[in-house]
Amino acid sequence: MNDDYLWNRSGPPDPDIHRLEQLLGRLRSVPPLPHLPEADAERPRRRGYGVLLATAAIVLVVAGTCRTMRAPAAWEVASVAGQPRIGSATLARRGRIAVGETLVTDSASQARINVSTIGEVTVDPDTRVRLVATRQGHHQLALERGTLHAVITAPPGQFIVSTRSATATDLGCAYTLHVDEDGTGLLSVTAGWVALTFNGRESLVPAGASSRTHPTLGPGTPWYADADEQFQDAVYELDFGSDAARRAGALHTVLERAEAGHAVTLWHLIRRVDAADRDALVDALADQVAMPAGVTREAVLKLDAAALDQWWNALGLGEAGWWRKFAAPMPGPQQ
């Protein structure tokens, strides 16, 4: 038995273990972070103060509710390393970023932003991020370059990050988003889901999956982290390549290497290949997830939205309508 492969997938794959990974990997699932109740507060022990404390509590709750509902127009920012800047001002330890202001980190600095009352964003070195909007139920950053890590506890759809190549709408939890100077980006979701939209193109990226973004073409097809490099290369070619021969080779690679658990990738690619190539992708997806009753092959090949959505629903990643309910409208390039 190849213990190295069993330990961390290094070394030559053990065929039995690889087969078990493929089989049992189908059971992998990351449910979204549940809405959290208020944690138990320490209770006062002196009865004499009961009425007074109750009154105070009501006042605090009302005040807190009003504060939450208003959502502050500026967010707290803390320096994690070095000296980040907000506009032209250097951030020594703590500060605030207002709508329209830009937080900039150099190669030696890092910062953490409290996203109103709904989560936090860690801003890595060499990053520029602008606060676009913050109000009840809508909080938006623009990532101009660099990397941020978002952990959001709000209901889906409230936190949005726009880049030159996609708009990322948080559907509950944690992800990392990177964008280069030229707008090329990479999203990796660690928990929950993220919807990427741009110029009429959408990608629904579940936990454990990543998706590239292209400055003119928008979001690419998601792939799971266990997909090998050749598979990822091929997906990239099908998403963004234009050479017919290379695309044909890429399709062949995807079909050859598609394993159980790659249904999300295959589903997205159906919309992104030429009509003549759809048949093969439909077959490959059907091998993994049966076409639901009521969905016809003809409808899928014609890219009928309802048919594709029904098939998506059968993947076990939530209803397509749920995703879209919260996803931001599909914008053009960020100004």
Binding site: S107, D124, T147, G208, E229
Partner: peptide
Amino acid sequence: MAHALELACGHRPLTYPGSSRTADPT
């Protein structure tokens, strides 16, 4: 600074430079 997630795809690799918190599940 070192990256924690690098996806070399035969194209320009994307990295998360200087990060201590990344999408690396390990």
